[in-house]
Design a protein around this nucleic acid. Structure first.
Length: 432
RNA sequence: UCCACGAUAGCUCAAUCGGUAGAGCAUGCGGCUGUUAACCGCAGGGUCGUAGGUUCGAGUCCUACUCGUGGAGCCA
């Protein structure tokens, strides 16, 4: 057998005879000519079997196996403009590795229920492969961004004894003799401990929300990135968030054009994602809503529709800061010049994709933090370790949380968050 | 939890006013030397989500239930 090469490296082997290994994506035949589309995870290649070029057995074999059968094929690589990917294999030999049973996902349309039931197979389709490759590129950009700025990756626990923010519904479990425990809703409080130890950290891990949310923006299990920085105030936090988003989006644009094209993404919308991002206060955002005819009362949180109206005013992500403290978490520091608003910031993605980042400067004053814990009716004993961060050398600090799948959904320009994660966990679905 | 919509062949869907269950894809066989979700011909493939009801007659109308989809609230 000749050297096994991958489809995305075919350009280096033009004129050579090579062996490809993969799965049958689609096939067409025309008399003495057969076209087999092979996919190998790195790309797609049309393999042409001409009756005159192969043995009788190989010619018969090449038409006999079904979609998604695995096989290896040997032939000469040539440039071919008519062919997908620009290269083609003139087949001289072919061997079936495993003949597939009748494959459920055909090249025609399918409903979402059927596709998600077959998620393990759906991942093989061109569109899903493109999304997963972009997901990987985004994850790499996120890590590169923080790593190159001297952040330390610090993994928070997944099992926690209490609700982080005291509001969400959590997945509950029995934890031996210690009573109830919960799957984490956020690694943030632990991130703060990390920032006091390491200066600048980021967490990157799974997060769980048991709310019975049933929309295209929700998963019960998703991945969250939470940087936390000692000595950062709200403005520093916003500077970092916009630099971060610009870097991630531009990295994907630079390296994943082909995949974005498969998804039909309008990349001009992504080209706009450059600093500076618009920054509007909550007050100003409320004015935008009123200008657009929304009957909105100061003090409420924005709904999905409100976020869309606000983000439609801009061509790039918009940072909304200084929300009413009453609707924000207990640990957020209040504006010293205006107690009714918190030093919080949400980043709203363009095109109606909604909130992708939520962050704030944290309350660093021991007495005020204790007051907030009592106001929110939270069990103080669970937070003693967190209060220690204020007892022992408290400093101004800030951070934000980024929902990975929401970021992917926006960058890919896809309709529903379930396609942004390999195996989505949703309120009425936990299989496959 | 609430609101709306849906369930017919392996898949995607159609079936007029309540009157014999249809098509494309997929599968099998045959044809074609440049196909791009190939095309052409033939064939097989149905407990119309479940349980009741109305009717001479129900895929179609009514009731309940099950499952699913979209949205609201809540959130990243």
């Amino acid at each position: 057998m000749l050297k096994h090469v991958y489809i995305n490296k075919l350009s280096q082997h033009v004129g050579e005879e090579v062996t490809l290994k993969g799965w049958l994506y689609n096939k067409r035949a025309s008399g003495k000519l057969k076209f087999l589309i092979l996919r190998d995870g790195s790309g797609y290649c049309q393999c042409v079997v001409f009756k005159g070029n192969v043995s009788e057995e190989v010619f018969e074999l090449s038409g006999s196996f079904s979609q998604e059968s695995s096989f290896q094929v040997t032939g000469k690589v040539k440039e071919e403009a008519r062919s997908v990917g620009g290269y083609e294999l003139d087949v001289t030999d072919l061997k079936i590795i495993s003949s597939a049973e009748e494959y459920p996902i055909t090249p025609k349309d399918h409903g979402i229920e059927f596709l998600i039931d077959h998620r393990h197979l759906w991942l093989r389709s061109k569109r899903q492969v493109a999304i997963m490759k972009i997901r990987h590129r985004i994850v790499k950009a996120i890590r590169d961004f923080f790593d190159s700025r001297d952040f330390t990756l610090m993994d928070p626990p997944i099992i926690t004894p209490n609700a982080c923010e005291g509001t969400s519904t959590l997945f509950e479990m029995d934890y031996f003799d210690l009573g109830k425990a919960y799957l984490t809703q956020s690694g943030q409080l632990y991130g703060e401990a990390g920032a006091m130890a390491l200066g600048k950290i980021y967490t990157f891990g799974p997060t769980f929300r048991a709310e019975k949310s049933k929309t295209r923006r929700h998963l019960t299990e998703f991945w969250m990135i939470e940087p936390e920085m000692a000595f950062y105030e709200l403005e520093d936090n916003m500077d970092l968030a916009e630099e971060f988003l610009e870097y991630v989006v531009q990295s994907v644009l630079k390296d994943k054009q082909e995949e974005l094209e498969v998804l039909g993404r309008d990349t001009s919308k992504l080209e706009c994602v450059k600093r500076p991002f618009p920054r509007v206060s909550y007050d100003e955002a409320v004015e935008i809503l009123k200008k657009n005819g929304v009957d909105f009362e100061w003090g409420n949180d924005f709904g999905g529709g409100d976020e869309t109206i606000i983000s439609n005013e801009f061509d790039r992500p918009v940072m909304v800061h200084r929300y009413p403290s009453a609707i924000k978490a207990f640990y957020m520091k209040r504006d010293p010049e205006r107690d009714e608003v918190a030093l919080a910031v949400d980043v709203l993605a363009p095109e109606g994709y909604g909130e992708i980042i939520g962050g704030s400067q944290r309350e660093d004053n021991m007495d005020l933090l204790l007051e907030r814990i009592k106001e929110h009716d939270l069990p103080q004993d669970f937070f003693e370790w967190y209060l220690d961060l204020r007892r022992y050398g408290s400093v101004p600090h800030s951070g934000f949380g980024l929902g990975l799948e929401r970021l992917i959904t926006w960058i890919c320009g896809i309709e529903h968050i379930r396609e942004a994660i390999p195996f989505p966990r949703m309120i009425y679905r936990n299989t496959p």
